[in-house]
Amino acid sequence: MTTTAQTSQPGRTASTTPTQRKPHPYLPMQVLLAFLVVYFLIPFWWVIVNSSKNASGLFGGSNALWFAEDIDFVGNVVDLFSYDNGIYLRWLGNSAVYAFVGGVGATALAVLAGYGFAKYRFAGRRFSFAVLLGAVMVPPTALVIPTFILFSQLGITNTMWAVILPTLLNPFGVYLMHVYSRDAVPDELIDAARVDGAGEFRAFLQVALPLLRPAMVTVLLLSVVASWNNYFLPLAMLSDNTLYPVTVGIGQWQGIASANNAGGTSLWSIIIMGALISVIPLIIAFLSLQRYWRGGLSIGSLK
């Protein structure tokens, strides 16, 4: 890969006049990139193609990467949403609740704390911040089993709260908001608001918050993705399948279908369709919020 980069022209300055030199100085690199894009898209393509097949199309030994004779896309969607009294729709709804409540809550806490760390000097601040940085390095899954045991003693396992409450914890989000608040909100601006008679909280809401918007969207998106994609935590916490998020639900279907390989053939087509539909909401979110996260994701990695 690097050899390809070597033959091409470097830097943004050269990119303005590539057509004037040779026909396509960047062609080898673009071809390589096209191959990579194909690789990254193959699983999506497989799922789209195979979600249109019925059981005989799936197992009939037809081409795995192309559509079967009879496309049964609608039939599979109907099967998916009617299976087990439409439990799939419920799972989607649960995922949305977990992702939304957990994501918004985690973001709100991160914005407040990040701003507090960046703009106030209080006793114990340095120590608390050091502890926070240490917490970034604690793997979240190491907390799942102890949290489960704690929750079971409080009697709140197998409830929505058992999934939502632990997702409120996002130390990395606090770190990002701290870095961003420190650099994007000038102290002079807050001081000016104070001189004008605004209280501390009003200065935060009306002066600082609008400036923090790009970082907020990024932290929100990261938190929502983390809770939408979460698997270990809900798998441990929930035993009632009407509370499952879509990840745990599909995982369970897949276990059932694999266990009885012969009888489970009809389940495979709804699993594939379920996988396809479950990825659509986040893809839409990412495509529509591009302009925010593209810049925001680099917070904390720039000096």
Binding site: L109, K119, Y120, R121, A135, P166
Partner: peptide, 21 residues
């Protein structure tokens, strides 16, 4: 008073931090 405000901003996260970490 301002130190206290700083703590108030951090407090909600601190509670979650203590409870779930």
């Amino acid at each position: 008073r301002r130190q206290l405000t700083g703590w108030l901003f951090v407090a909600p996260f601190a509670l979650v931090f203590l409870a779930f970490l």
